[in-house]
Design a protein around this nucleic acid. Sequence first.
DNA 1: CTGTTAGCGCGTTCAA
DNA 2: TTGAACGCGCTAACAG
Lengths: 333, 333
Amino acid sequence: MAVTVKNVALHAGVSTATVSRVLNDDPGIRPATRSRVIESIKITGYRMNKAARSLKTSRTGTVGLLVPELVNDFFMTVAEGVEDILRTEGYGVILCNANEDVRYEADRISLLIEQCVDGVIIIPTSSEGSHFSSLSDAGIPVVMVDRMVNGFKADAVLADNINGAYSAMQNLISTGCRRFGFIGGSQELSNFRERFEGFKRALSDYGIPVEKDIIKFGNVHIDSGYNLMKELMSEANPPENVFIANYFLQVGATKFLIENSSAKTASIHIAGFDDMSLSSILGFSSITVSQPMMEMGRKAAEMLLERIEEQSALASAPPPPRLVRLKTTLIKH
Amino acid sequence: MAVTVKNVALHAGVSTATVSRVLNDDPGIRPATRSRVIESIKITGYRMNKAARSLKTSRTGTVGLLVPELVNDFFMTVAEGVEDILRTEGYGVILCNANEDVRYEADRISLLIEQCVDGVIIIPTSSEGSHFSSLSDAGIPVVMVDRMVNGFKADAVLADNINGAYSAMQNLISTGCRRFGFIGGSQELSNFRERFEGFKRALSDYGIPVEKDIIKFGNVHIDSGYNLMKELMSEANPPENVFIANYFLQVGATKFLIENSSAKTASIHIAGFDDMSLSSILGFSSITVSQPMMEMGRKAAEMLLERIEEQSALASAPPPPRLVRLKTTLIKH
DNA sequence: CTGTTAGCGCGTTCAA
DNA sequence: TTGAACGCGCTAACAG
C-alpha cells in the first residue's frame, strides 16, 4: 500500500488536515510546521492520490483533447499548444483519437465523462455536434478548435479562413494571375467552407468568373488531393494557378504532378493552406496561408481554463459562448 | 450533483450493492433484478464516477503514453497502435509530451504517478532511464518502445534495426553499389546506434571500406539532415549512395538536394528509414526500410496489459523483462 | 494556527 | 440472491 497523508501526518506529528493544508499551499500555517511536514513528505516518499482528491473536490486535474486523428501535423501542433498551457497549470491531457468517425467520437466522449475530466477541447471530426451535448449535460466545459458544428453551442477557436484564403488570392491576382482552379475538402466542414468562401469572394471582387469545371471537392486527405489534381489536369483547359485548401490535399496534388510531369503540369503554381515543416520541399508551391496552429491550441486551453474557473467559482448561469478568430499570415516562396 | 449508484438503487428499489454488482457483471444476480437495474441506469442517466472506483480498486483504467514530441508521424503512428488496443479494453490514454527534454520527461512521469495510471508506455527521449524507476517504485508497469535506455530495466518493443539497415545495404550492394555515405542520428540513442551497426556490418561483410569522411552524425531532425547532407556534398569526393537513418533526416537531406541541385546532387540515391505517407514524394529515394510502427504500438499495449493483469493477479515476483524485436520490411521505389 | 470529524461514490465483506 | 455497513485517501467545515 502506498504512503498516504496519514503516514505523513504521523511522521510529522501533526494531523492529516495540516498535511493537506501544506499540500494545497494553504497560507495559514506556521512556517516551522510547514517545513516539518514538507520534510516528512520527502522522507516518506509521499505522493498524492489524485483519485481520492477528485472524489472530494470533483475536479480531476485532467482535460480531454479529442482529435480526428493522431498522425496529422496540424492537429498535433494544436495539441502541443494545448499541452503547453495545460502542463504549466498542472493539468494532465487525455488525448483521444476519434478516428474520423462520429461513432468513435461519441464513444470517446463517454470515456472522458466517466474519467471525470474537468474540461474538453475538441477538434470536431464532422459537422455533427449533437453528441457533444452530453458533456454540457455533465457540466463539463467544451472548447472547439478549427471547426464549428451544428447542433451544439460552445466556445470556439478558429482561424480566419475567409480572409486567409482571400488574401492569398488577392496576392496572386496582384501578380497578374486571372484564372484559378480550386481543390477543397468536404464542404460539410466549416473551415473548408470558409476557405472556399474566401476564394469565391476574391474572384467576385476582382471580376473573375467562377469556372465550375476547375473547382473540385473531395475529403481532406492525400489520396483525395492526388485524385482531384488528376481530374483538374484532365480538363480541357486546366488552370495554371490552383488554390488548395489544406496541406494534405496539397501533398497529394503535388504527388500527382511529380508522377505525371508534362508541359501542362510544369507551369502549375499552387497556393496552399497550412505551413508545415515539410511545406518547403513541396514543389509547385508559390504561396501559403499559414494558420497559427500552436497559438490556436494555446488559446483554446486558456479559454477552457477560464471556463473551469468560472464554473468552480460562481454558480450563476455561465456567459454565452465565445468565438475567437485567429489571423493567418501569408508566406511567399 | 451527478447521479450516483445511490440514485439508481433508489430508482430500482434495490441496494447500492446490487447496482454495483450489475455494473461489474457479477454473475450471481437474478436476471429480472439485473434488467430492472439496467433500466434504471438508463432512465436516470447514470455514469460511473471512475475516481470513486479507483479509490476502492486502486486501478484507474488509464495508462500513460510518454513520447518525445507530438508533431512526429512516427511517434503518433505508434500512438495510434497503442490507442487502438487500449481503447477496446476500455482504457483511456494520457498522452504526455516530453518535449525532447529529460527534465520534462521526469516531470511528466511524476504527473502520471499522481494520476495513478495503471501502466506507462514510454518512447524514451534520451538514453537516460534512471528517472523511470520511480514508476517501478510506485508499482506501475512500464513498457518501452523504439529505444532502450541505461539505468532501467523493463519490457521493450523494438524494431530490428540492425537487420533492417543491413538488408537495405545488402540490396543496394546487390545492384552494384560499392560506396556509401551515412547520415545518422545521435549515437546516444539505441535505435540509431543499431542502424549504424547494421550499416557497418554490411560494409564489412562485403569488404567495403568504411570512409569516415562520408559518415555524418547529428540529431534526429530535419535541420540536421539538411546540414549533414550539405557537409557530405562538400566533401572532396561525395558518395552517390547515402544511407539515412530516419525519415526526418531524409526530409532535411532531400531539401538540401532540391535547393542545391547540380551535377553532383543529381546522381544521389538515398536509402532511408521509415515509410511515411509523404515518403513517396521525396525525390532521390531508392529504397526504404519500413518499421511496423502501428504494430509496435499494439504490441507494447498488449505487453502492458499483460503486466497489469499479472500484477493484479499474483503477488509474487514478476517475470523478468521481455524484449520483443519486430521485423522491418524493405520497400523499393 | 491546528485538530477533529464527516463524507465524496464506489466495491466489498458479512449476514440474512 | 440481496442488503447493510464499512472504508479507500483526501479535503472542507467547524471547533478549539
